[in-house]
Simulated assay, not measured.
Amino acid sequence: MCLRSNFALLFALLCSFLPYANAQFRIKNGQDIEIEESLHSVAIFRIVFYICAGAIVNVNTVVTAAHCLKDVEQDELVLIAGIADLDNRGSGQTRNVQCIHYGTGYDEETHFMDIAVVKVEKSFDEDSVVPISPISLCDYRLEPGMTIQVSAWGRISETSRGYSNQLKTKYVDIVKTQECKTGYARVCSVHLSETIICAESGVCFGDSGAAGVRNGQLCAVVQGFSSSNLPDKYTDVTNERVRDFIRSKM
């Protein structure tokens, strides 16, 4: 009885998706960068606490992961753009949220359409001394072996305490979706939805919602990771259903 209970707990920990706003994500073994290298990046706060990242897709709109925002009151959300160091948040472009559009059919269990389009109350200023620049959506399919760049403010390792305030980045390769799905089904008894794509391990607590960028375009959005040596999971922006949803709400 006790052994079974302990095994169940271990299994749950190893296969935890960890895609929740309160379980914050950091780029593992990433390199520090300045905001000029990731002008689309947005830090999302619940009042004063960093919870997730996002990407500016036009001056009124930020794309992030749906699970980041689902359990947070809209008036608690604060978006800050134009900064790499969260200690300098007061110098960034700070915006409140006007409305949130969750992915059509979003399912918290399967993470189908784990995408959110956030409209801000006041447009971001592209001509400000605080730099920002919207990122365009991917106009091609991601394929295994392609490399994406991920930048966010998550933990630097799964065991680290606290969070480095500096924006970090890492390059990861897309892996075969079927192999990823088979791995999660075998190890975790989890069936990944059609809107998920996988990449080699690289993200950690606090990186949820960050953009996966290739050739200067938004191709994926960080969804979560596993502690059992499985690939990381992303919402696939190159999936027609996901891309069309984002475009319809921009």
Rank of each mutant, 00 (worst) to 15 (best):
I44Q: 03
V242E: 11
L10P: 07
N22C: 05
S164R: 11
H111P: 00
S248K: 01
M250F: 07
I148F: 04
N29H: 09
S5H: 12
E194Y: 01
E200W: 02
L86G: 09
P134M: 07
F112A: 09
V72R: 00
V120A: 03
E240I: 15
T169V: 14
I80D: 02
V237R: 04
Q217M: 14
F124D: 02
C198S: 03
Y106I: 12
D107G: 04
S38I: 04
I156E: 14
K168V: 13
V130P: 03
G183L: 02
I196W: 02
D173G: 15
H111R: 05
S248I: 03
R161V: 15
L142S: 09
A66W: 00
T61R: 04
C204N: 04
L9F: 09
F205L: 06
R186A: 10
H191W: 03
V130A: 08
A185F: 12
I246P: 09
S5F: 15
I246T: 01
S226T: 06
C188Q: 00
R4E: 15
D139P: 08
V242F: 11
E200M: 11
A116V: 07
Y163L: 15
G90V: 10
L86V: 07
G90S: 14
A12S: 13
D127P: 01
R243P: 05
I33Y: 06
S227P: 01
V175M: 08
T235G: 01
